[in-house]
């Protein structure tokens, strides 16, 4: 689960925010701004877009916090809004370019990943960051939703308005791209033995 789940807000603050209390909203913003912005930046890669999406997310929170019943954690609710805003943005960006979700793999040349140094220092977080950046937006988003935010393929499919197979295929292609880096890192950390004992496809 991502950082969203680690943040707790007193229910009294949420109640005050539901009444439009600006200080309560500021507390919520200060608590969740970094995970929201990071998620939007991860999806869009462009700081200006991430800023706009962060703004849209918090405005949406202000508009609809009255309807928040506290059945799920506030962090999960906020994350849902942020993810939905970011995906809407990606969809509209694709539409304006006359593409549909998933066609962006065509833009990625085979040498693109290598140019990001995937096979050089495999255990370096910067390399993973760079490798992730080298993925098409939709695949990167699917990887993030699946492996960081913990969404299932069914949930990702619903969020993206596509099928589960689409989500799985995007993840599979992304994993293929990341695999040289991951295999080397797994070997270095000595976990490859465990890996050999387990399944290999």
């Amino acid at each position: 689960m991502s950082k969203f789940a680690d943040i707790e807000i007193d229910p009294a603050i949420v109640k005050r925010a539901a009444r439009g209390d600006s200080r309560a909203h500021e507390i919520i913003y200060r608590s969740f701004a970094t995970p929201v912005y990071s998620l939007c930046l991860r999806f869009t890669r462009v700081p200006a877009h991430a800023e706009d999406l962060t703004q849209e997310t918090f405005i949406e929170i202000m508009r609809s916090i009255n309807g928040f019943r506290g059945e799920a954690a506030l962090g999960s609710w906020i994350r849902r809004i942020a993810v939905s805003k970011a995906l809407m943005f990606l969809r509209s960006a694709w539409t304006s370019r006359g593409q549909s979700l998933g066609e962006d793999w065509d833009d990625v040349t085979p040498g693109h990943a290598a140019s990001h140094g995937i096979s050089s220092h495999p255990d370096d977080a910067l390399d993973l960051d760079a490798a992730l950046e080298s993925l098409p937006d939709v695949s990167r988003t699917v990887v993030w939703l699946h492996d960081v935010e913990g969404f299932t393929h069914k949930e990702i499919a619903k969020l993206m308005g596509r099928t589960e197979s689409f989500s799985k295929s995007q993840l599979s292609r992304a994993y293929q791209r990341l695999r040289p880096l991951l295999a080397a890192a797994a070997e270095e950390t000595g976990t490859v033995g465990a890996a050999l004992r387990s399944y290999r496809v």
Binding site: Y175, R179, L182, A186, T189, S198
Partner: peptide
Amino acid sequence: LTAAEHEVL
């Protein structure tokens, strides 16, 4: 992906 690779990721 193997389990180890997935865990690394």
